[in-house]
Design a protein around this nucleic acid. Structure first.
Lengths: 123, 123
DNA sequence: GATGTATATAACATTTTAGTTATAGAACTT
DNA sequence: AAGTTCTATAACTAAAATGTTATATACATC
């Protein structure tokens, strides 16, 4: 669980162009030109984005004559998803502990109030 | 579902120092000094990381005398998690369709072979 | 073999990011 | 009120990211 892998995955996902590319690739392989078409951006720019995605392991490249078809890979997402899930679980645990604490404090306070308030009286 | 929110979330998570800060905060509120302690990094550097996290909505700041306690917030994660889940689901759907296609091709091929092979013969 | 098409790379400019030190301000302590 | 503690900001530097244009390369086709 190298930190650098997570860095690469989250960095790759942090760019809207790259997320759009991945969204497109989720529907199936595509060539660089096909991927570049929807964007107001040069082909070399897209090639660079693809290099980022490839370094992060989010895509792999094939070979079909002059084309280098790009294919999405699912694996690297697992680690990133896991990090986020673990984080959220810890957060939630902490919140529920906080809730418990608040409950405790409330109960304690009620007890004190009860002690201060003579038997049978209400407040 | 502004793209810029996702950008901010993923960018924030792309840095190991910020992930460590969040991991620490998942256990409960902390002051800037407490957060800075484990890192070989100046206090202003940590303050900058906190500003990034705050802009992404991943933390909120409180006030306790000179301290500005930092608290983790869960909400922004939802969108990011959703993006990743949707992406993975689409990917998997596509893979299973590919599997179907391969099955089809195999069946087709088997049928052809059968036609080429006279009745009763095996190959 | 000349031409076209798909992609990668080089060289460059601009912006953003991540860190530094120095300093300022606000609130506590004595 | 003087000093200490906590945090933020300013000014700066260095490196990385994102885009550009021009060019090279590899294959396909005429």
């Amino acid at each position: 669980m190298l930190s650098t892998q997570l860095d690469a995955t989250f960095s790759a996902l942090a760019d809207p162009t790259r997320r759009a590319i991945l969204a497109r690739l989720a529907l199936g392989e595509a060539s660089v030109m096909e991927l570049a078409a929807p964007f107001a951006m040069s082909q070399p720019a897209i090639s660079k984005h693809l290099k980022v995605l490839e370094k992060a392991g989010l895509v792999s490249r094939g070979r079909d004559a002059q084309r280098r078809p790009v294919k999405a890979l699912a694996e690297p997402l697992a680690e990133a998803t896991k990090w986020m899930e673990t984080y959220r679980e810890t957060l939630e645990m902490n919140f529920s502990r906080l809730d418990d604490l608040l409950e405790e404090l409330k109960a304690e306070d009620a007890a004190k109030t009860a002690r201060k308030t003579p038997k049978g009286e209400t407040q």
